[in-house]
C-alpha cells in the first residue's frame, strides 16, 4: 500500500485495467498491470510509453471515465470516483473538437460555471487564461474559425480556467506546428514556475526532457522505469529518447 504524504497530489496503487470484449478472450485484454506511482506537489511528471502501453487507460481511470479493474487511484487523497476529486484539476484531452458554435469566451464561461466560479472571478479568470494562451484577439470569434493550434490553446485555456493545482495533459503538443509546440511548452514551464503540478503524456521526448522533473515509462501495461530525468540520463549515459527505446526493449536492428 502506498502511503500518501501531505504533498502527494496523485496516487496510483496497484492499478489494474482489463478490457473485456468478444475478441479479447475469456480473460480480456490487460491494459495496465499493477501500476503504482505517486506525483508530488509542484512536479512536472512525464508519463511515457509507446502506443498501447496503457497511458490513456491510466488517464481514463484517473479522470473517472472508466472504472479500475483493481487497485486504487486518488487525487488529493480523494478517490477518483467522487466528482469532488476533480474540483482542483485541469484536463486537456488529445484531439478534442470544442463546441464549434461557441466563441472561446463563451466556452470558458461555460466551463467556469461548471466549477461554480462566482461571476466576477469567472470573468477575471477568462481574461487571465486567454491572455496566457494568447487568444485575446480571437476571444469573440466562434471556435469553428480557429486553426488547429488555436483549438489546442483554447483547450489549454479550459484546462486552466479553475486555476487548478494539478494539470493533466494528454499529448498537449500533438498535431501542432513548431511554433505552437513552443508556445505550449512555454506555458507548461510558466505553470511549473507558479508551482503547479503537471502530469502529462507525450511522444515528444525532447520536450519531456526539457520540462519534466520525473518520468515514468510504461510498456505493455507495466511500469518499466520511474525516476528523475537527470538521474536517468546519468544512469544510462544517454538522452531520454535512447533511454526510452532501451527500456521498452526496442531494437532497430532486424
Amino acid at each position: 500500500m502506498v502511503t500518501s504524504g501531505p504533498e502527494t497530489i496523485l496516487s496510483i496503487d496497484k492499478l489494474v485495467v482489463r478490457y473485456r470484449a468478444r475478441d479479447t478472450g475469456p480473460n480480456g485484454k490487460l491494459a495496465v498491470d499493477r501500476l503504482t506511482l505517486e506525483v508530488q506537489r509542484g512536479e512536472v511528471f512525464g508519463f511515457l510509453g509507446p502506443n498501447g502501453a496503457g497511458k490513456t487507460s491510466t488517464m481514463n481511470v484517473l479522470l473517472g471515465f472508466i472504472p479500475p479493474t483493481a487497485g486504487t487511484v486518488s487525487l488529493f487523497g480523494v478517490p477518483v470516483d467522487r466528482p469532488i476529486a476533480r474540483q482542483r484539476i485541469g484536463y486537456l484531452p488529445e484531439l478534442t473538437y470544442y463546441y464549434r458554435f461557441l466563441s472561446a469566451e463563451e466556452l470558458l464561461r461555460f466551463y467556469a460555471r461548471i466549477f461554480g466560479l462566482p461571476a466576477e472571478l469567472r470573468e477575471q479568470r477568462i481574461d487571465m487564461v486567454l491572455k496566457l494562451v494568447e487568444l485575446e484577439h480571437a476571444r469573440k470569434k466562434t471556435i469553428r474559425t480557429y486553426s488547429r493550434g488555436m483549438q489546442q490553446r483554447v483547450g489549454l485555456a479550459q484546462a486552466l480556467i479553475n486555476d487548478p493545482d494539478l494539470l493533466i495533459l494528454d499529448e498537449p503538443t500533438s498535431g501542432l506546428d513548431p511554433i505552437g509546440r513552443m508556445k505550449v511548452r512555454s506555458i507548461i514551464q510558466r505553470l511549473k514556475q507558479e508551482g503547479k503540478t503537471v502530469f502529462f503524456s507525450s511522444h515528444e521526448l525532447g520536450e519531456v526532457e526539457t520540462v519534466c522533473d520525473r518520468v515514468a515509462i510504461l510498456s505493455q501495461g507495466e511500469l518499466k522505469t520511474l525516476g528523475r530525468v537527470d538521474e536517468l540520463v546519468r544512469q544510462y549515459e544517454c538522452d531520454l529518447e535512447k533511454i526510452f527505446l532501451k527500456v521498452i526493449g526496442y531494437s532497430s536492428e532486424p
Binding site: L63, P83, R86, Y91, T96, Y97, Y98, Y111, Q158, N162
Partner: peptide, 13 residues
C-alpha cells in the same frame, strides 16, 4: 467530438 472528456473531467456527475 470528444467534448465529453473535458466536460466529465470537471466536477460534473
Amino acid at each position: 467530438h470528444r467534448t465529453i472528456f473535458p466536460l466529465l473531467a470537471k466536477p460534473l456527475t
